[in-house]
Design a protein around this nucleic acid. Sequence first.
DNA 1: GTGCGACATGTAACCGTTTACAATTTTAAC
DNA 2: GTTAAAATTGTAAACGGTTACATGTCGCAC
Lengths: 336, 336
Amino acid sequence: MPKRATPSTIHDVAKAAGVSVATVSRVLNRPHRVRESTRRHVQAVIHSLNYRPNETARNLSTGRTLSISVAMPFMARDSFVERLRGIEATSSVNAYDLVMSNIESVVRRNSYYESLFDGRRFDGVVIATLRPSDEEAAQLANGAMPVVLLDTSHPLLSSVDCDDVEGGRLAAHHLIERGHRRLAFLGDTEFGFNFVSARERLSGFVEVLNDAGLALGSRDEWWIVHSSHAARTLLSPILDRPAAERPTAIFATSDLTALALLDGMERLGLKAPDDLAVIGYDDLHGARWKALTTIRQPLFQSGVSAIELLLSQMGGGNTSPQQTLLPLELIIREST
Amino acid sequence: MPKRATPSTIHDVAKAAGVSVATVSRVLNRPHRVRESTRRHVQAVIHSLNYRPNETARNLSTGRTLSISVAMPFMARDSFVERLRGIEATSSVNAYDLVMSNIESVVRRNSYYESLFDGRRFDGVVIATLRPSDEEAAQLANGAMPVVLLDTSHPLLSSVDCDDVEGGRLAAHHLIERGHRRLAFLGDTEFGFNFVSARERLSGFVEVLNDAGLALGSRDEWWIVHSSHAARTLLSPILDRPAAERPTAIFATSDLTALALLDGMERLGLKAPDDLAVIGYDDLHGARWKALTTIRQPLFQSGVSAIELLLSQMGGGNTSPQQTLLPLELIIREST
DNA sequence: GTGCGACATGTAACCGTTTACAATTTTAAC
DNA sequence: GTTAAAATTGTAAACGGTTACATGTCGCAC
């Protein structure tokens, strides 16, 4: 079989099979609409010509693109890969292509929003971690294309997220139950794009503390750091305080910083939870090794749910904004 | 401005501007081919109608799709994100869409190869980490679509890779220079998909050892483990041996396992490099914190190069297979 | 004033599908 | 054997662009 210079088209098939292109198309798309014998014959010809329908032409004709745009700042969360796996698995099962965009700068963010509506390129969009401004949200909501937010939310848009406030509560309850009374909080800034989730976790945390008659006493009991390295350097000032003023437990909004903390403690010869109890967030792989107590988010599942929600909206189902909250889970290990 | 039920087309623009569609198209694609005054007028109309050319139609007409398929087993290497960032940055700069596929099973791998040639969906392909079989490679090489392999290679195909053999040599030289004479090797299986790079690193490592009159004595001096956890459990058998038979340095083909090793040593109260020197591979973030000596791969750059090579082949330049080797770098820290 | 090339624009075919509608054939009830 | 309904197939018009080619216009040298 000589290599064809140009792949065969539906017309080639039609001619070779002695039928019209409409019939070939039906064999492909509505097989039961064509007589059994014809169908078999056409299928044989398709096979022998190694014919594959041109997706672009098909898309133009049907008005859909079978592709979904996913925007996320790759590094913003360590949990990135797991979410992406959920997204990818679900879209590939549903025969959708996944087009990735990495949004790591304001410039890129703007150009993304700019191009998103270009030329009907996507059937739907998932925006992960990047909380849209009110204007952006309005723009997205008014667009013709369904949008689902993941790991963030906005009143105008559908979203799949975890209840960060509840996560803060879980952490607080657990620490209080363990007998801790002087607590501290360590947030991460998520690279400046999105400050919301750390703040929400803090608010849930504080809420429970207040209900228990406790408090984050002063500005000294919470910090926001940008990196694991920064988390380490915090350790000495904390531990240098007199025992009576020293927090006995710390809630870190990311396993990364929590692990850095543990690591720093190890170097100083200190042990969790006796010298300082630590609870993290996410349940990354490292958390298990280091026996870090943490709040687990259903990362993979969140990707799955985001795509499922998107597909349902694309299918024209309930098209009004729908906020999904996924449950968190407290994983108790040795660090508390 | 009322929301249009249906977006405007090139015909709407042509009519509104009182010109033909050809002229509008030229304004978009070959601006210098149209009179200055016309161009300005048409551009004004385009803007006022908020017209965006339909990409699908454009693609059908021009025969390209402006999208690139990237296949990789997401988790296979910890370096995944960095490579992907390089890939994404370069393709987005060149206005190509990046379509991700996560190949984590043989089933998925087969369906990927099956669908890759469907319907001319992509202008080019990058396959990362997954070494194709000879059949697969032949199939890819015969296809109409340019292919670049990343982090692996095959004689029939273009590739961007690091010289794993050289990486093994670098590690060996360094350890020997540091005075070590009894060495050990710790490979990772990369989840069973690809066993090649660990083996190549081993061969470079052994080569230098042999040249120096040394050897990996027996099967006892090298292991292949599947996980960081497994790496830890190796530690005791190694260290339990009599001092004269105990390796004084170990080369791990992944920073992940190297870090696990360091971690296990810490727990046992041992210190690198005195009790056991450790050298890793990749230079992940964790390597810096833990002061792990390692062989750094240019991860981001490898993604960039892969796309650049792909684009050049897509551009019809040199279309014969071209193997690129990127340089490695020995990063010396405290663990050796 | 004529002729000719350069430039600007329009006409219409084409890219490869899907699908509404029309035309034809089959089926089955009488 | 009729006949109406159902099933099958074909015709041709979309889908929304690009572009080869034809046509028309203009400037300028003669």
